[in-house]
């Protein structure tokens, strides 16, 4: 077996791992019960799966320039994935797309309750006042 064959084999195994994570994400999406849990399932192939596949590409091409060309893909994904995950999780919590009965600890709910209870006369400062969505959801019912 030449080095070329070995590298091809390693690249194949990396592909297999990436594909496995992708499958597990699909299974997690179907089996988990609420929005945040499904988000956890979704982040696996987004980062580690991508990392595996990009490594496989670089191994197969066996050139430094390919590695450099592939690096920005990971950089972009790492910059953008947390933003969309956070936006969805926040929207999910605000719209009640969350199984509260399956929560062991709910510190955020307690914090919102605290603000709602103590701040009948003052406007809530727990959330960013610049964000209208945040400010209004933390305000007590009038």
């Amino acid at each position: 077996m030449s080095t070329d064959d070995i590298l091809t084999l390693i690249a194949g195994i990396f592909l297999l791992l990436g594909a496995f994570l992708s499958l597990a994400a699909g299974v997690g999406l179907v089996r988990f019960h609420d929005v945040p849990s499904r988000l956890h399932a979704a982040t696996k192939p987004q980062i580690l799966g991508l990392l595996f596949v990009l490594t496989a590409i670089a191994l197969e091409a066996q050139s430094w320039s390919t590695l450099l060309a592939v690096a920005p893909v990971l950089v972009f994904q790492m910059l953008t994935a947390p933003i969309s995950a956070h936006m969805v999780a926040r929207a999910g919590y605000r719209t009640g797309n969350l199984r509260k009965d399956e929560l062991l600890v709910d510190d955020l709910g307690e914090a919102i309750d605290r603000v709602t209870r103590t701040e009948d006369d003052a406007v809530g400062d727990m959330v960013d006042p610049d964000d209208p969505a945040a400010a209004s959801s933390a305000r007590p019912p009038s």
Binding site: S22, G26, L29, R38, P45, Q46, L50, V53
Partner: peptide
Amino acid sequence: ILDRMIASDVLLTTLMLIVGA
């Protein structure tokens, strides 16, 4: 709608990985 968006995100990521594969 949020579940659908997460799932379509996963679908897109899978497509991206398939392009790589």
